[in-house]
Design a protein around this nucleic acid. Structure first.
Lengths: 103, 103
DNA sequence: TATTTGTTTCGTATTTTTACGAAATAAAGA
DNA sequence: TCTTTATTTCGTAAAAATACGAAACAAATA
């Protein structure tokens, strides 16, 4: 980089982009909707696999992406894994998006 | 696909994913923040290039992505192109995200 | 008409994402 | 201990995203 420019994007801009990236695939939106609609009972991977025309391993990969973005968490209870929305980060994302669009 | 599953994602889930995809890169968040903060005057590509350590062509590509997602629009006034937030779609995205996170 | 100007498009390379089936895993039950 | 079960990880392939510099563009101006 020959001429470093004055400034670049902020931490919040990077955070927002990260959450947006997690939500940027329809299957992952579906998963998040599914989990958010079933907050009381949480869900197993298999519950969602029933509803989606994709391989189990592909679903697992989408769950991994959501988990690494922090939007969901999985409580291991073999051979099941009970997935839930990660409340703390969900609220952070909600706030970031609300701030972003509030203009 | 041997066993077509019962249902798949909805139109709104696809729309949300599409808007999220557009916002899923920090440079694009930066651009949208920049435009939203300057609603009165709108902006030229060059105004933003000053602030970002990326090639002009790369910025142009990000603008193209945002335009094709519908979040911005460009009024051609050669050799300038004045960019603005696309108000209608911005409101739609705002609403979709608000609905999504409201739980 | 040739030049300048701000921007986009093109060609290309690299990286990341998405997807699948096969194999691995880890606990429960036969 | 051998299966069964629900799920993840691995290996791989194909598609999409990201980035850059060079070339193209289109209007204004010299």
């Amino acid at each position: 980089m020959q001429h470093p420019k004055k400034k670049y994007y902020s931490i919040d801009q990077e955070k927002l982009a990260g959450y947006a990236r997690a939500v940027s695939h329809p299957v992952r939106v579906f998963i998040l909707d599914f989990l958010a609609d079933n907050l009381d009972k949480c869900c197993y991977s298999g519950d969602m696999a029933e509803e989606l025309p994709i391989a189990r391993s592909t679903l697992s990969e989408h769950l991994r992406v959501l988990k690494s973005a922090g939007l969901i968490q999985g409580e291991i209870n073999p051979p099941f894994i009970k997935y839930c929305i990660n409340r703390e980060n969900w609220e952070e994302a909600k706030h970031l998006f609300a701030q972003f669009f509030k203009r």
